[in-house]
Each structure stands twice: as structure tokens, then as C-alpha cells.
Amino acid sequence: MKVLVCVKQTFDTEAKIELKDGKIADAGINLIINPYDEVAVEGAIQLKEKGIAKEIVIVAAGSDKAMDAIRTALAMGADRGILVQQDTAADEFARAVALAEAIKAENPNIILAGHVAADDGSSQVPTRVAEILGLPHVNVITAVEIAGDKATCTSEADGGTQVTEVSLPAVISSQVSWNEPRYPSMKGIMAAKKKPVATAAAAAAENKVKILEFSLPPAKAAGIKLEDEPEVCATKLAEWMKNTVKVEVK
């Protein structure tokens, strides 16, 4: 069984986001493999360790910088990579078209990805890829069992869990709670440079989204501190909510 994992290179989650000339400044920012995709890579490796997956292929679309995300996945234990070279300004649609094109050529049994990227947080690409490829999609999974050409996925649902049985091939995107990604071992890091990574040109696709402006969220105003008897505090808090925050009570 061939498992393909889509990964994205994102900003370090601890990076301080700043705007320069109306754009997100990326100079000097540490880039990491999207933590949600890292979980998907770990999931794929566990499938290989269980003898279900034979080969793990990593696909990333983006600039040469995305190569680091591929190498990290290879160091963790994936077998080979494909870098689909694409302008970093590509939107979710264009990115999904590019990824789907590369995936089609590989014809994998399972396509894994993180359900969201830590940077733009749009949560669209796995769903779009499944739609383009005409495959079923199971989202935010926390566990998966493979038997024959069927996958039984457990995912989070409001107030409980949802179990979905899906026929393969399918796109399955992971929630972070699926597993705890391993550290790449020294052996893995040393082996990663010898593993093959192919490059491919992205399929042409026009962005559907036009970015007009970037802005940072407004700075959070200081809160208030009430120090009094509980009843007094409650009254004061209610007044503050009514008069200052102007909470409307219907």
C-alpha cells in the first residue's frame, strides 16, 4: 500500500508575526514543518511499522524552502519526496490543483495531511484535493484502522466522536491528537539526504482569492481586576459588561 502525505512549510509557531510594507515579514523567521502535517507523517510511519504501508511519499507545494519540510519528513522515516514548485502566493485553490496533479501521477492508496496549516489556518487544502480527485474525505481524525481497501476513521464531533468507514483511496486529514510525532533520529537525519526528492512544475491554476490587505489583530486591551466580596464583584462585573463592553441582553 502506498501512502502519500501532503506537507507544508510554515512559520515556527513561536515566531513573532510582523508586517512590513503591508506584507507579512518573513526575513529571519524560523520555518518548520506544519505541526498538523507532522502528525500525518507520524501516522503514515506508524502504518508502515504495522506492515500496512509499503512506501511513504511526501509531497509539498511551494518554494525551495519547502524542501526543508520534506527533508524533515524523510528524516522521520518517509521514503521519498516530491517538491511541486509553485509561487508562494498561490491560494488554497491553486495549491490544491498543484497537489492533486502530483498525487494523481502517484496513484496512492491513502492520502494523508494535517487538517489545517498553522500559518494561514484556512483548513481548505485537503478537502479541495479530495474534491478535485473525486475521492472521499474524512476530516480531523484521531485514529484510523485499515482493513483491506477500507479505512475506519475516528474523528472528533460535537460532544462525542464519529466513526466513519471509507473505501480507499481516500483523503484523510488528521487532528493533532491523533499521535505524538517522533523526533527524527540521527540515523534518520543522516539517511534523509540520501533519499530521493523529485521536483515537478505546478499545474497551472489561477488564484481564486485576491488578498487586498494584511492587518494584525487589534492589541488586546488591559482587563479589569475586581477585588471585593463576591456579591459586590458580581454586581460591578455586570455593570461593567453592560456599560463599558455594552453586552446586549435580549
Binding site: D68, R71, T72, Y183, I189, M190, K193
Partner: peptide, 14 residues
Amino acid sequence: SDESLMMRDMFRKF
């Protein structure tokens, strides 16, 4: 080198 950077990331995370 790329390998050393990857190692440093791993050392740091670990």
C-alpha cells in the same frame, strides 16, 4: 549545512 540545521532543530526540540 542543511543536516546540521536539522540536527540543531532536533537537539533544541528534544
